[in-house]
Amino acid sequence: MDYLIHLAILFSIYAMLGITLNVLVGYTGLLSVSHASFFGIGAYGTALLMVDAHWNFFPALMLASIVGGMIAYMIGCVLSRFRDDYYALGSLGLNVIIFSFFLNLQTITRGPLGIPGIVRPNIGSFHFSENSMFLALVLCALALLWMFFHHVTRSSFGMVLRAIREDEDAIQVFGYRTHFFKLAIFVLSAMGASIAGAFFASYISYIDPFSFTVNESVFLLALIILGGLASHTGSVLGALIFVLLPEALRFVGFPQEYAAQMRQLVYGVLLIILVLYRPRGIAGTYTF
């Protein structure tokens, strides 16, 4: 049972990351390869505030999310002027830079040693130390994020995002300053990823820079492409498959020394099959 709860918690965290990335990549058409950096900012922000400053989890989460949003705002001011490949390259550079900060800013982040001893959340004397309690909390957060981004994408704002994806020049003709919309969704997406990072840090209780590399950003992209672009359901299904698949592959009987590589191979083959035969993913609106 504990094992299933563990998987459910990981699934919830990755579903949050999927939903928050999908509003950027799926709905707006901005190929961002920097989501792991905001995941990391949320995780590091929460960890530092809880371990060094002994903050409670909830205010730490909020501040970490705001910091993630502020960093996204500063970088987004430049990034939202770009499109297509340039946007992808710019966001990739951002992930590399932030990873370098995590790795080299040793006085704050402890570099490759990481930050251990991150505790679970508590409200007064009630501690979410039981995994089942933590799962309930993280599921609540996932539900809230889903509802928020559902509202965002159903509003006129969401309609403008989809129009930007389709033809940014054309929508500008009708009086929309698209770089502000791109900036706003980048900030909201980053804040959501930071929240997921906060839960990740608190659950795992130890973080290091290697959880927030470009590889992780690419993994998240694969997750939403598999689940389906511009679909919250798709993001959640993608997370479900990407969390459960490695566990399922344990029972296939790959030799122990090749198991990790074989999983990567299965991911790759899965993506190729998907692109060829179901380019919209499982529940997507757009093809990649």
Partner: peptide
């Protein structure tokens, strides 16, 4: 046409 206005508008 504004961010805030469009976010609140259905």
């Amino acid at each position: 046409r504004t961010i805030g206005g469009s976010l609140c508008e259905h």
